[in-house]
Design a protein around this nucleic acid. Structure first.
Lengths: 203, 203
DNA sequence: TTTTTTCATTGACTTTTATCAATGCTCTTT
DNA sequence: AAAGAGCATTGATAAAAGTCAATGAAAAAA
């Protein structure tokens, strides 16, 4: 019964502050201010964080667990846009920034703990803490670079090369996520990915 | 002989400041500081701004003309990653930020005029002008959202839908860029894009 | 435990896209 | 005006990926 560290289902933001500090060192005062703008949230497996059509009201930092964002195409197939493991952030940035209805769904692949930054918190923090803007800028830049690499590999590599690249870049995801979701992320059917894998193990 | 407006091949940064001001209003003093960090550059058609293997030393704003970034795959095919028309920025951000050798080439599709922000200028501006950081953050965010949409369309739409989406989103590019480059941008052969187009006009 | 459900694999077949080769058109360049 | 380069289109064929259906294994639920 550790009442001190887990009061009413809440949790500490250990990973959040740890990864934050390595990129942009905040001082004590800044940390105190920042903390007042954060909201913890727990999700059960399969629970939605965001549904298509709703306006995305937060950026979520994954403290524990894993999530995905995805769309549903006209045939009803899920198309996974992004995975997020511990230490990543996930959101529908377009919806968040423009307040338009979201085009993506986000849900939890495992029981998860998140640190939420609401839209109003985001705006206040941008005004009050220059370092918050720096942190956000670096996060988005990193996400941009990662996505550009993914795009490059899609339009210029063979399936074998793409899957090999994925497994070496994200071994954690391969471990924790069902294969058919990785197929969806790659824009393939589960059958095709299965055959790609067989071909590769033959070598 | 307009010596006043075009001294020794230089040019004004009209579009740059115009688009800058609509997103982040700079005051006179800030504009004056910013100006000292900018470098004009003119490129002829087909001239390189960046070659694979070199370190990318700038972010380029397109004042006039058009450019593309691309990789060469193992078969020698060019794979276009990005186009940039007037008002866009283009760079190999990964190389720029990490000082690793660039994985992309950038060259001019037409005679072009650029506004360059060098790495050192970028770092100084981040320190001196908070609004510069805001501007850069907004630029990268916009680029991220645009790329996420492109990725989503790649993994969830048919070729017809993708090409229709491209032409309605970027009619300027369709006008000014050869079709085989658009095919390359879409990850297709020129023949396949030609057939997609024929199918569409039949309807 | 037993019963479902989810998941990965495989085979047969279809559809989509790439490849190779040829043609004619439009611009430059000479 | 003639020659050459770059470009878009088309046809025939090959390769890649998707679809449909079935099977068995593993995981979750009862």
């Amino acid at each position: 019964m550790e009442l001190v560290t887990s009061k009413r289902g809440s949790f500490m933001y250990e990973l959040f502050f740890q990864t934050l500090q390595t990129k942009v060192p905040f001082n004590e005062e800044e940390l105190t201010i920042l903390k007042t703008y954060l909201t913890p949230k727990k999700l059960r497996k399969k629970q939605y964080l965001l549904q298509e059509g709703d306006v995305c009201k937060f950026i979520a930092f994954v403290e524990k667990g894993s999530l995905r964002s995805y769309t549903i195409d006209e045939k009803g197939n899920e198309r996974i846009i992004q995975f997020a493991l511990e230490g990543w952030i996930i959101s529908d940035l377009f919806s968040f920034l423009t307040a338009e209805p979201a085009t993506y769904n986000i849900d939890a692949l495992e029981g998860s703990e998140l640190v939420l930054i609401s839209k109003t918190a985001h705006e206040e923090l941008l005004k009050k803490l220059p370092k918050y803007e720096t942190w956000i800028r670096l996060q988005i830049t990193g996400a941009y670079i990662a996505m550009q690499r993914r795009l490059t590999s899609i339009i210029s590599l063979s399936l074998e090369e793409r899957y090999a690249g994925f497994t070496s870049l994200y071994p954690e995801i391969v471990q924790r996520v069902p294969q058919h979701m990785i197929a969806s992320y790659m824009g393939l059917t589960p059958e095709t990915l299965s055959r790609v894998r067989r071909k590769m193990t033959r070598k």
